[in-house]
C-alpha cells in the first residue's frame, strides 16, 4: 500500500535519533581525558563523606499519585478515538462520554476526599 509510505521516514528518524546519543558518547570517549582519583569518583554529598546507601525509602505519596495517574491515563486514551469520531455521530455520543467522564469525576472526588491527592 503506497499510502503508508511515510512510515519508513518514521523508522529512519527513530534510528537516527537513537544513534545520536551513541555518537555523542563515542566522540566524547575519544576526545575526553581520563584521570581517575578515588575522591573524584565518590558521590557528591555537599562535600562530606557519603553516608549510607542512597536508595532510601521515600514517601508513599509518589505511589498514590502514580496510581491515580494510571486511571486518568486510561480514560484519556479512550476519549481520543471518541473525540475524533465526534462529528460523525453527534448527540448520543456526547451523552455517552458525559456519563463516562462523570463516573470518573466521582472517582477523582473520592480520591480528593480520602486525601490521596494530599502531599502531607
Amino acid at each position: 500500500m503506497f499510502l503508508l509510505y511515510e512510515y519508513d521516514i518514521f523508522w529512519a528518524f527513530l534510528i537516527i535519533s537513537s544513534v545520536i546519543p551513541i555518537f555523542a558518547f563515542v566522540i566524547s570517549g575519544v576526545l575526553a581525558p581520563i584521570s581517575k582519583r578515588p575522591e573524584k569518583l565518590s558521590s557528591y554529598e555537599s562535600g562530606i563523606e557519603p553516608m549510607g546507601d542512597a536508595w532510601l525509602q521515600f514517601r508513599i505519596c509518589y505511589y498514590m499519585f502514580a496510581l491515580v495517574f494510571v486511571v486518568f491515563d486510561v480514560e484519556t486514551v479512550f476519549l481520543y478515538p471518541w473525540a475524533m469520531s465526534f462529528d460523525v455521530l453527534g448527540v448520543s455520543v456526547f451523552i455517552e462520554a458525559l456519563i463516562f467522564v462523570l463516573i470518573l469525576i466521582v472517582g477523582s472526588i473520592y480520591a480528593w476526599r480520602k486525601g490521596a491527592l494530599e502531599w502531607s
Binding site: 555523542a24 558518547f25 566522540i27 566524547s28 570517549g29 576526545l31 575526553a32 581525558p33 581520563i34 584521570s35 578515588p38 573524584k40 569518583l41 565518590s42 558521590s43 557519603p50 542512597a54
Partner: peptide, 19 residues
C-alpha cells in the same frame, strides 16, 4: 567544551543505567 570534558562515573553507581 562539554565534548572535551571528562566523563565521570560515580564509583558506587550503576554504570549502565547511568548512561
Amino acid at each position: 567544551k562539554l565534548l572535551f570534558k571528562e566523563n565521570i562515573f560515580p564509583a558506587r553507581g550503576e554504570t549502565l543505567l547511568f548512561s
